[in-house]
Design a protein around this nucleic acid. Structure first.
Lengths: 213, 213
DNA sequence: ATGATTTTCGGCACTGGGTGACGAATAGTG
DNA sequence: CACTATTCGTCACCCAGTGCCGAAAATCAT
């Protein structure tokens, strides 16, 4: 998010920001977890970050946009990873590797990640806000597939691949945030392999066994 | 939409309704097409249907819900069709047949269908409102897959199939409403066959050729 | 017919998300 | 110090969505 390539103070020009997008996100996540999304007003989030309501809407276009920071940067990551995949790899295999590589999280970040993803898939207003962010994710994959297949990005095949891959990943996300027993990448890998296998009836052993304890 | 199985007056008890969900939908679709979704207020829709603003919200929970009637009934249709599929059919083949059977529209209904679907996939607020309706669609397929595979509905495999199938169908919907050259079922068939084939790199000829004229 | 019952409707008031305008606050720059 | 750039806060406003309550319009019972 910061445009400074290095850790420059950079000596910017005007009045320094009173908060940051990240700070607002943390405050919002805490309040949403404690008292619910709908029960939390934008005023409360802004006040928790020491800023006014109007300022919140300068950082985010909508109340529901506040939890999508990390997902949006993951889109950038996947786009970059796909661009560097060897050209002889099958399309779905390249996508699978890129997705898995983009979803390795530090252990310290996992609890927050889980709380955020649970909210995003549980609260109806937040799930609705996903559309535009999912769209960018799908387009990243569709554009890759389009380049590989020499088709325009809007044609049917790239569109189907982009959306189906995201669908599989979302299934893995939800299953992981509900069970919490295995690594996220295990679920992602299982879901994407099932997709590449044509969702055939014989891929039923794909669910990772629950880990005792 | 009318609950009368036959053309019964049915002699209901209280004050007769001043409008209907369908009438509100038609008025909304016209206004959205003419002047845009965000530029149309609920007051205008209600007035066009000869009713008050408050009454609109007795028929629909939200402004964006007004275009989802037919999609929701299609979910019911697919659920019923899946229940009657022969048990020896592969899962994806059964789903493909059910989806195609549920998407045969009368020629007279096609123009309205196209306008509605274009709005639903184009206007951000409407696309966001899709989440809950898509969820019901996915669950119908997931439940079927769960029954077939003897797994619980929330496990990974049924979840992936439900979502991936919807993803493929959405791609077909969008492509159809953008091009308008072939029948909707042609696109749906192509997308679902590609899914069953594992989205392999060799299914590139799936796009129907444009029809001259 | 008249009154009781049932169902829908309209009006009102209120909360909260989102936006535009404008001046104040706080930094660097010459 | 004056000038400029950037963020912030306040205010006013529109509209979506909700709870409340009484009125309207139908049927049913007597």
């Amino acid at each position: 998010m910061t445009d400074d390539v290095l850790a420059r103070p950079a000596a910017r020009r005007g009045r320094p920001p009173g908060t940051s997008a990240r700070e607002l996100e943390v405050a919002a996540l805490r309040l949403f977890s404690e008292q619910g999304f709908h029960e939390t007003t934008v005023d409360q989030i802004a006040t928790a970050a020491g800023v006014s309501r109007r300022t919140f809407f300068r950082y985010y276009d909508a109340k529901a946009d506040v939890l999508w920071n990390e997902f949006d940067t993951e889109v950038q990551t996947i786009r970059a990873l796909l661009a560097e995949m060897p050209a002889d790899l099958p399309v779905l295999e390249a996508v699978r590797r890129a997705v898995l590589a983009a979803n390795h999280y530090r252990a310290d970040d996992v609890p927050e990640l889980r709380r955020r993803m649970t909210l995003l898939s549980t609260v109806p207003d937040l799930a609705a806000s996903a559309a535009v962010h999912y769209d960018a994710w799908e387009r990243a994959v569709s554009a890759f597939v389009a380049r590989r297949s020499g088709q325009p990005e809007e044609s049917l095949y790239p569109l189907v691949v982009g959306r189906a891959v995201l669908a599989a990943c979302r299934a893995a996300y939800d299953r992981w945030s509900a069970r919490a027993d295995a690594d996220l990448t295990v679920y992602l890998d299982a879901a994407l392999r099932a997709l590449a296998a044509g969702l055939a009836d014989d891929v039923l052993g794909m669910e990772p066994d629950p880990v005792p304890g």
